[in-house]
């Protein structure tokens, strides 16, 4: 592949690592106690990224839809599980709820983008599918853990309100829809905020990358816009799904608020 950007070699990586050295030295001088975790985090980041670099290099040479779909599924599963791991309370089925929501949301959104918008040939071309899916998953994951956490905490803090309504004859939906709405709103806040200031405060990483790689800025911007719409749609679908599934679990068909299903997550 012809490239009109400067390739970074391993020697240059070592030079960049000096930047972290500054932080470590500062931490040691001021006795912040951050040195160790900084080093571990930096090391993990380098190892994980180098590994994923090799995996991607291998993956992009693959032409088997099944292998690529399998990798996509693994990524989705990891996103689904991590979304739950960041919440404070659990209930039976929460992991399935999250997996199902992440899978449905990301498959719909990424599928539509690949086939309908960008029209990649073949539809599973990993050079497009994997990065696009990754962007969608990352944001859906955040939205899901925020929305889920807010929904459950909202039910706990507004328990009297919800049960008063139930006792007055409200259906479970009438009693809890304020909490559902609030949770979806909170889950969407980061996505909406980031779209608001996009380009003013932050230059998105993907666009920066494309520009560094020599792409025409306007082309890069168009890609970025598509990605942001995908992210927003994926997050909205995922949050909606996971909050509704949690609602169906925590508000029983007998119109009861079942906070007894909740357990604190073990740290």
């Amino acid at each position: 592949m012809e490239s009109d950007y400067i390739v970074i070699g391993y020697g240059q990586l070592a030079l960049a690592a000096l930047l972290i050295g500054v932080n470590v030295a500062l931490s040691a001088a001021l006795k912040l106690g951050l040195g160790k975790s900084l080093l571990i985090a930096a090391l993990r980041m380098v190892v994980q990224l180098l590994l994923i670099g090799f995996v991607l290099e291998w993956l992009f040479t693959q032409d088997n839809a099944l292998i690529i779909l399998a990798i996509a599924l693994v990524m989705t599963a990891i996103a689904g599980v991590s979304a739950v791991n960041r919440t404070q309370r659990r209930f039976a089925g929460i992991y399935w709820h999250s997996l199902l929501s992440v899978l449905t949301a990301s498959a719909l959104v990424t599928g539509f983008a690949m086939v309908g918008i960008i029209r990649v040939q073949p539809w599973y071309d990993p050079q497009y599918l994997i990065p696009l899916l990754g962007m969608v998953l990352g944001n859906t994951l955040n939205g899901i853990s925020l929305g889920l956490d807010r929904f459950v905490e909202g039910l706990i803090s507004q328990r009297d309100q919800v049960e008063t309504l139930l006792a007055l004859g409200a259906t479970r939906w009438e009693a809890a829809h304020a909490q559902v709405r609030n949770a979806i709103r909170v889950g969407m806040i980061p996505t909406i905020n980031s779209m608001m200031v996009m380009g003013l405060v932050s230059l998105p990483g993907m666009m920066t990358g494309q520009i560094l790689a020599g792409a025409d800025p306007i082309d890069a911007v168009r890609y970025q816009i598509v990605i942001l719409f995908m992210i927003a749609a994926g997050a909205a679908l995922g949050i909606f799904g996971v909050v509704l599934l949690a609602y169906r679990r925590l508000l029983s068909p007998d119109h009861q608020l079942r906070l007894d299903y909740l357990e604190k997550a073990k740290q």
Binding site: Q161, T164, L165, L166, A167, L168, G169, T171, Q256
Partner: peptide, 19 residues
């Protein structure tokens, strides 16, 4: 049906809340 039942047999909790 619970809403219909609870509209006939109504529980007024001790801790009263504004809805």
């Amino acid at each position: 049906g619970l809403p219909a039942y609870r509209s006939r047999v109504m529980y007024v909790p001790q801790r009263a809340v504004s809805i």
